[in-house]
Computed example of a mutant assay.
Amino acid sequence: MNEDFLWQAWCDGCARPNPGHIGLGAILLGPQGGRHELSERSPHTGCNNEAEARALLATLRLARALGAAHLQVQCDSDVVVRLAQDAEATEAARLAPLFAEIRQLAAEFSRLELRWLPQHRNTAADQLARAALGLPPRAPAKPARRRR
């Protein structure tokens, strides 16, 4: 990918309760360093997987509106990363139309790379998704205690 034109994004979604109201969060960094944030409450209700998928869809829409052609998106949902790239997947059949919409929008980019990352490395997008529902930031995970 030509790094000169690469946009980077981190997205996250949350559902409270689960299933329940959906919050969407995303951060986009433009090739010249411009930062754009998304924090909004979805009009839909659903489970965490739907929230994550809707956050990815909102991120792709925002990126297109900002003129991004080459985009790398980080998402902490392995389910969303897999299903967004696999039109033949049958898990989460209820969400198939949503994933079809994601794949259709993804095809509008010259290049799109979707990557999974651990939840603890996606805290800024998580905070934006939670803020959209009026929730405080998630407490930092406590380090695991080592057994002797």
Score class of each variant (00 low, 15 high):
residue 2 N to T: 01
residue 2 N to A: 07
residue 2 N to S: 11
residue 3 E to P: 13
residue 4 D to A: 14
residue 7 W to E: 09
residue 7 W to M: 05
residue 11 C to T: 13
residue 13 G to R: 09
residue 14 C to D: 08
residue 15 A to M: 09
residue 16 R to V: 13
residue 17 P to E: 05
residue 17 P to S: 03
residue 17 P to L: 10
residue 18 N to V: 02
residue 20 G to P: 08
residue 27 I to L: 14
residue 29 L to F: 05
residue 29 L to V: 11
residue 30 G to T: 00
residue 33 G to H: 08
residue 34 G to R: 11
residue 35 R to F: 04
residue 39 S to R: 03
residue 39 S to M: 02
residue 39 S to N: 04
residue 39 S to Q: 09
residue 40 E to I: 01
residue 41 R to N: 05
residue 41 R to G: 02
residue 45 T to K: 13
residue 48 N to H: 13
residue 49 N to T: 12
residue 50 E to N: 00
residue 51 A to M: 12
residue 52 E to A: 11
residue 53 A to L: 03
residue 53 A to D: 01
residue 54 R to Y: 05
residue 54 R to D: 05
residue 57 L to E: 02
residue 63 A to Y: 06
residue 66 L to I: 02
residue 66 L to D: 03
residue 67 G to N: 10
residue 67 G to H: 11
residue 68 A to E: 06
residue 69 A to E: 15
residue 79 V to N: 07
residue 79 V to K: 04
residue 81 V to H: 03
residue 86 D to N: 15
residue 86 D to L: 04
residue 92 A to R: 10
residue 93 A to V: 03
residue 93 A to P: 03
residue 93 A to E: 14
residue 94 R to P: 01
residue 95 L to C: 05
residue 96 A to P: 01
residue 100 A to H: 10
residue 104 Q to L: 13
residue 104 Q to A: 15
residue 104 Q to H: 12
residue 105 L to N: 09
residue 105 L to E: 14
residue 106 A to I: 03
residue 107 A to N: 08
residue 108 E to A: 14
residue 109 F to D: 11
residue 113 E to S: 13
residue 115 R to T: 00
residue 115 R to G: 00
residue 117 L to N: 02
residue 117 L to H: 06
residue 118 P to M: 07
residue 119 Q to S: 12
residue 119 Q to I: 00
residue 119 Q to Y: 09
residue 120 H to R: 15
residue 122 N to P: 10
residue 124 A to N: 04
residue 124 A to G: 03
residue 126 D to P: 01
residue 127 Q to V: 01
residue 127 Q to H: 13
residue 129 A to Q: 08
residue 129 A to Y: 04
residue 132 A to E: 03
residue 133 L to H: 09
residue 133 L to Y: 08
residue 133 L to T: 01
residue 135 L to R: 08
residue 136 P to M: 02
residue 136 P to F: 02
residue 137 P to G: 04
residue 137 P to C: 05
residue 140 P to L: 09
residue 140 P to N: 04
residue 142 K to W: 11
residue 146 R to S: 09
residue 146 R to K: 08
residue 147 R to T: 02
residue 147 R to L: 13
residue 148 R to G: 14
